[in-house]
Design a protein around this nucleic acid. Sequence first.
DNA 1: CTGTTAGCGCGTTCAC
DNA 2: GTGAACGCGCTAACAG
Lengths: 333, 333
Amino acid sequence: MVRILDVAKHAGLSVASVSRVLAGLPGVSEATRERVMASVEALGYRPNLAARRLRSRRTDTLGLIVSDIRNPYFVEVGRAVEDVAYAHGMRVMLCNADEDPEKERFYLDMMRDENVAGVILSPTLSLLARYRPADFPFPVVLVDRCENDTPADAVVLDNVDAAQRLVRHLIDAGHRRIAFFYGAASATGRQRLQGYQEALAGAGLAPIAQALKPTADEAQAAMRRFLQGGGALPDAVVASSGLILLGLVQALREAELRFPDDVALAGFDDMPWTRVVTPAITVMAQPTYDIGRSAIERLLARIAQPEQAVHRIVLRGELLVRGSSAASNTKTV
Amino acid sequence: MVRILDVAKHAGLSVASVSRVLAGLPGVSEATRERVMASVEALGYRPNLAARRLRSRRTDTLGLIVSDIRNPYFVEVGRAVEDVAYAHGMRVMLCNADEDPEKERFYLDMMRDENVAGVILSPTLSLLARYRPADFPFPVVLVDRCENDTPADAVVLDNVDAAQRLVRHLIDAGHRRIAFFYGAASATGRQRLQGYQEALAGAGLAPIAQALKPTADEAQAAMRRFLQGGGALPDAVVASSGLILLGLVQALREAELRFPDDVALAGFDDMPWTRVVTPAITVMAQPTYDIGRSAIERLLARIAQPEQAVHRIVLRGELLVRGSSAASNTKTV
DNA sequence: CTGTTAGCGCGTTCAC
DNA sequence: GTGAACGCGCTAACAG
């Protein structure tokens, strides 16, 4: 291993000068800088990160804890976070809490042990309920999930509004009995439920809400049970997330039910597959890359100025009307 | 910050004893162990990882560099790697090289700087072509991509065989003009091309191969161009990966072509959406979780015994015949 | 079984 | 503008 001392010797300088050059500090002559860089190159020197972190007590690492890496939404958010972070010379540790408060706790502890500069977090409901900034030894930016009164930086969709608009679209299309399958274990699922309820109430309609765990498998099972319940089919079914939407479609296929003929369909997240099923599925698209980019920019700003006021960044969803939501007497593709 | 010295004082012991207990080393009395643990608990002590790594020159971190995090295949592999790693008390740094040799180089350098204990890598073609174990300061296990003569531990599908069986199935179903859209920038894509060619040659048929970058967008564009070429439509089209398959389906939908009526379809990877399009799509499924699990187990074994012989683990794909591959005169769902 | 202590590689004073 | 020296918190070698 080549150490900073080796570079100093090779350049005929002291370790202090080498350190200054490497840190980009002022107060170094151009000649010295060049000699150092030449020696670094010649010896193939790489700074020892462990030593640097021990000594400086700082880290160029950020954490990103997502609640489900299988959700393309979080994959896209992660890509944006990485892009911006690396452009700023920081690295990102991506962790998957899998909607499990225990894993979430584990990863948060790990972030602390790694002494990260900050964390972007998609919190479980239980963490959000008792969220206190002071509980974390690093700045945190919430993403995707946040209550109105959570005292934290956050980047979220306007979930109530988005769900309202999605459901109103269905109402406008002529649907009356509209079921809602939502992830009850996240703030986001609950807010979308609220938007759903408000839209129905505004039209004098009765809600049919199904709470479930936000995975495709759980949604498929829930829809299966729902169908076996034997009651009349609703006019339309709405999913509160892309993964849930996938599960619903799986169950409908399984039951050989067609949309929108047998039941209309709509959901969240503009996943690629929603455009290849026939008819294509009406969705409320989220600006995923923007969400990720805003979150990391917020975090970097917070790190630079720890004492500034809390920012809540709320983004608007985009309704993409496609064939799946048509009234059954006006089928389209 | 509470240091190991604070724990030692609190317990009335030396730092050595505390260190021994924390490392789980033998030669410590039960009474001492308990006193240490009590003090650790009482003070909320967390070891400083930077100091530990600096001093011990070891790390409990593994690297996983995937070539495209948007590919659900790699997401599943990653989940398996994480599960096993954490069960062994190791952490995983997940990085997305995005099929970019420059990013790949960047992450490999980063792994070196982080002094990881080992890396699981899905290599670009250019890296694989000049692969030498000695070029890496840590053990490496290749995953998904590997040439027959690559001198490295690896876990891969039997790509030639898998592609052969998939294409033979199409031939058996009565298709004659079979096109193949494959990712030319990976060893895996090329091996699957070979299997495709061999299957066709065995039946005396002529290949129609389209090389492209392995993303859905590129595949969609390639298929679009192919269709605009104006020639006769092939009987069937095969995709060498799940992402390419998605792009093909997008282009077919766009052109309002139906499968298998207008053209039969098959591909790799049993992605959830392949079951919700109608008809469902015939695919060669990969044992993704097994691939990830085998890779991490191989890596841990290699770390434990650096000098053992190279292992190449080859897994078999599973053909899932569904409606999309039927001959056009025997349509099914 | 337990304690003392050197030093991992680096950043950062403080002299010069 | 540059160099010498201390110590970050920990592990491991050695002494007892």
